[in-house]
Design a protein around this nucleic acid. Structure first.
Lengths: 147, 147
DNA sequence: CAGCATCCTCGGCGATACTG
DNA sequence: CAGTATCGCCGAGGATGCTG
């Protein structure tokens, strides 16, 4: 536990150093990370793109079937693909113009990120039982076996 | 690229199998993952808790200083800590009642998750230059050197 | 069929005030 | 000082309709 102003500052400095690792200390990579992994569809999109190259319509269907809820709206899909493309994780290939034929795939950087995401998802999946047990325990302790 | 209904279904099946990895196939761990990593403060909280045990007031200050924006509101901090505790990632220790003395720390499971988060953040930090380059390239290509 | 514009909903988060 | 309750904002994301 922290007790003094100086200790707090020291902790902050240590953490900043830890988070920066190689001299990249300007604004937190945490926000960038959450922007990447944190939204509803990007991780799923990365996962799907990792297997092959897709047309937008196919992406929508697969993503919709993969997620427990309904399909992604194509507006959001376009948005997310654009964002991912901008960060350099997905590559867009336009082949035909009439009718439009566009396919999406991962870049090298995107493939790395996809592995990260995949690892993360697997970790959660493997710990699922422990997490659910913790939840049940917490609920029992707090809501006093109501519900 | 997918061409037929059957191919789509096969892809979905393959992905589902990949995502499940060990027989954990019931509802997507992706949502659980994003719920863990995706929000504004949880990753930061995990990172900070990994170093020691903290009082709520200290947590607020450190988190506030770490994030580029202002302090976390103590309402949200309590919310996030409760959520993390419920999932079994943080442990709450109440020592005094008058005045209240409560400290927070990581559980074993939480320590594992913290490592995951930390790894992720480091990955992004190390790739920061490439990402920024990609962004610049994209913007130049799309907004035709305006801005 | 890819992409964009418009409108609307909803949940995460912040600010403030209050209790023990 | 820990925790809760109330209110209000804002942005992510859904629905629909139109263009090339």
């Amino acid at each position: 536990m922290i007790r003094s102003e100086a200790e707090t500052e020291a902790m902050i400095a240590a953490l900043r150093a830890e988070m920066a690792t190689n001299g990249h200390r300007r604004d937190d990579p945490v926000r960038v990370t959450t922007a990447l992994m944190g939204d509803r569809w990007s991780p799923l999109i990365l996962l799907v793109l990792g297997m092959d190259t897709w047309r937008q319509a196919d992406l929508r269907r697969v993503l919709g079937r993969l997620s427990s809820e309904g399909e992604i709206s194509q507006r959001v899909l376009t948005l997310k693909l654009r964002a991912l493309e901008r960060e350099g994780f997905v590559a867009r290939h336009a082949t035909g113009h009439v009718p439009p034929q566009v396919t999406y795939g991962l870049t090298d950087l995107g493939r790395e990120l996809q592995e990260q995401v995949y690892r993360q998802v697997c970790w959660v999946a493997e710990r699922k039982d422990r997490i659910e047990a913790a939840r049940a325990h917490f609920d029992r302790a707090h809501f006093d076996r109501a519900d």
